[in-house]
Design a protein around this nucleic acid. Structure first.
Lengths: 198, 198
DNA sequence: GTCTATAGTTTGATAGAC
DNA sequence: GTCTATCAAACTATAGAC
């Protein structure tokens, strides 16, 4: 006698399929551009017929939304347990480089996360929460070095974000801006004068 | 007896229609997003049927291309005759603010000019030339203050571009980053040490 | 140069059998 | 949960009359 699959097992399978779909969606977005994403292409890659996607996502927008949340989730997982150096310059450089490398690795992902590239797309509350989580984490990291002014945090995000933009737009795959990150952090440290972490 | 319109007059009329179409295209892009631009919507606004657009542009891509070139052209016109202060700090601030204000005034335009927002769109040689022109102009402007290292120029574009990005993405219509531009220029001046213009 | 007509795709999404 | 069948709509682009 065979038992029926436990509901736990079913849920796991469902989740796995969802992830397969998202993986395919990311692949398409990377290869053809975020705005060129189509349900057909995604379905083909997963080995499904397009209508079957609707068993897992209620619309194309829901896929964009899941991608958005997933991207921020992945980055959050990557930074949430890191231990930063006590010395401000080294720590801030690590923060900047981690974000830079993550962002530069995938233009489509960066466009979805940080630019308003998909017309009418607005992340759901749940997905947006992940982005907020990451920014809060950055705020706490900076605060540990005495950087608490909102203007100082804004300065930091603008500086690192600007480097990412230039790298992606004008030297994709290269290091023209990446290699200037240490210099950037030096500038920032001189300006904001963070103190050594306690 | 009526004469026939001079070929000069005909050319003027053609050019005017082209501009009308581009104006409509910009309006759609601003209102609905750059990626949501459709020939139908553009035609409706101009008061034409969609196929008529093909008398003026050979494809949708050609419209994107003309928009791209036009945007850089407009910005170039805006800066080509300006006389900068001799004092480095004031001059660099003016350069940064001019670019910032222009970019922040229109998200769709900024996306077309500086981000890779439209899948597969590659500007034609002629349109791209306008962008190069502007960058050359910036190089000459900076050179007048002794800023000639490519890395210093790259730093400047990344800093100002980053501010634009943050302003558009996280405080559209506001001044959260705009008001920190003087501070940014102070940082840059300390780092690069431009000399007074001769 | 603008129109009508229409081709030829592609798209996101639904209905209902299995 | 996946399929087939299908839809309705939108799209870019072309042909040819006026």
């Amino acid at each position: 006698m065979l038992g029926t699959p436990s509901s736990d097992r079913i849920a796991k399978r469902r989740e796995a399929t969802r992830r397969e779909i998202l993986d395919a969606a990311w692949a398409v977005a990377r290869e053809q551009g975020l705005g060129a994403l189509t349900l057909r292409e995604v379905a083909v890659r997963v080995g499904m017929r397009p209508p079957s996607l609707y068993s897992h996502f209620e619309s194309k927008d829901a896929i964009y939304d899941a991608m958005y949340g997933q991207a921020w989730q992945i980055f959050h997982d990557q930074v949430k347990d890191r231990v930063l150096p006590k010395e401000p310059r080294a720590a801030l450089l690590e923060i900047a480089e981690t974000f830079f490398d993550f962002a530069v690795a995938d233009l489509a992902r960066f466009q979805l996360m940080n630019q308003r590239s998909v017309p009418d797309f607005v992340p759901s509350k749940e997905s947006y929460a992940m982005a907020v989580e990451v920014l809060d984490r950055l705020r706490r990291d900076l605060a540990a070095f005495g950087v608490t002014d909102e203007s100082d945090v804004d300065l930091f995000t603008a500086l690192t974000g600007g480097f990412v933009d230039q790298q992606l737009a004008n030297d994709p795959g290269g290091t023209r801006w990446r290699r200037q990150l240490p210099r950037l952090i030096d500038m920032y440290v001189k300006e904001v004068k963070p103190r050594r972490r306690r």
